[in-house]
């Protein structure tokens, strides 16, 4: 170049970063997966936000449903009802998902997850194997639903020129007021916010079981599955799930400012303590352990994973 700045990018560097996939399939890796395999991976890595059936939880994106709603009030825009290109789904999941552990999915798992999302949208049968070969056999319902920006013809022509200045309308009446809805957040300023009193905490000199560093490190890896919803340690905040600092051997439902599900609140009132055994049982299959829990996580099947994550959490105090 003119300035001679920078250096040539190496092929392996380009390969590491250049992962985008174009609508014509350029960039699509070799691989395959089906909805049955995808269902398990989805339950494990996606369902905590997107729901077991890709229906979405709370404000997290809904990935399935919404067919033929685009011309209704509040259309439901999902992969099935709205996305024009299936390549976009692969491109996004491969690079940016799972949330909090982006880029960790092998290509076959991405194919399987995409297949499961298609299956949830009734766009493929459960025996359909999605691969780089079969990718374009799938028809996206809204493939022809987009037009290129036409504001110049539909808007600019009619909203250009000298506007009216006097007596532009006969009557002006208020037709809607924001106060009726009252969805504006509280606006306490930083200066007005109460400053929490700091009190000296006496440190118990109780001997704590030594942490198994290796097991805790393994737990840190498993914890990636939880990170989209939970924080732990210094500076942790409640997110979709409560702060987990001090959870091991702590009282259930005790984190300030977190709104627990009714069943968990009830269990907490009943004196539930998160002993290692209780935590392991909960983590193995949350919905079986506590029917109605808000925690939408399919569970940690492996006992080694349960033990590792508990050790990891224990390293933040117990």
């Amino acid at each position: 170049g003119k300035f001679g700045l920078g250096r040539t990018a190496l092929p392996e560097e380009i390969a590491a970063w250049d992962g985008d996939i174009s609508p014509n399939g350029t960039g699509l890796p070799v691989g395959s997966g089906d909805a049955l395999v995808g269902e398990e991976i989805f339950a494990d890595k996606c369902a905590s936000c997107h729901g077991d059936f890709a229906e979405g939880i709370g404000n997290w994106p809904k990935l399935a449903g919404g067919a033929d709603t685009l011309n209704h009030d509040d259309p439901l825009k999902t992969v099935g009802s709205y996305w024009p290109y299936l390549t976009t789904t692969f491109d996004y999941i491969k690079r940016s998902m799972p949330y909090g552990d982006a880029g960790s999915l092998p290509d076959d798992e991405v194919y399987a997850i995409v297949a499961y999302i298609l299956y949830s949208n009734d766009l493929i049968e459960d025996d359909f194997v999605l691969s780089n070969e079969t990718f374009f056999d799938v028809e996206m319902p809204n493939a022809n639903g987009f037009i290129v920006d036409n504001r110049a013809e539909t808007e600019y022509v009619q909203w250009t020129g000298e506007p009216c200045m006097q007596d532009c309308k006969d009557v002006v009446e208020v037709t809607m007021r924001a106060l009726v809805l009252d969805v504006t957040p509280d606006q306490a300023g930083a200066a007005e916010e109460e400053v929490a009193e700091t009190t000296e905490v006496e440190v118990d000199e109780v001997a704590i079981d030594a942490i198994d560093a290796e097991l805790a490190a393994a737990g840190a890896k498993v914890f990636k599955k939880c990170k989209a919803c939970h924080q732990v340690g210094d500076g942790a905040k409640n997110r979709t799930g409560p702060i987990l600092t001090g959870i091991v051997n702590g009282a259930a439902g005790a984190v300030d400012g977190f709104r627990y599900s009714k069943p968990l609140t009830k269990a907490a009132e009943g004196g539930l303590i998160w002993t290692e055994a209780e935590l392991a049982a909960f983590l193995a299959k949350p919905k079986a352990y506590l029917k109605g829990t808000k925690m939408s996580f399919s569970g940690l099947k492996k006992e080694t994973d349960q033990a590792a994550i508990i050790e990891y959490l224990r390293s933040f105090g117990s």
Binding site: D20, S22, N24, K77, W83, G145, V148, D149, R151
Partner: peptide, 29 residues
Amino acid sequence: EVMDGPVESREETSKYTDTLEDGTSRKWT
């Protein structure tokens, strides 16, 4: 990356597109 066409990524298809009353949506707005 200099390319022959748009990637049509998540942020330019599923988001930041404008759905009109008849259900069609404007892109590249």
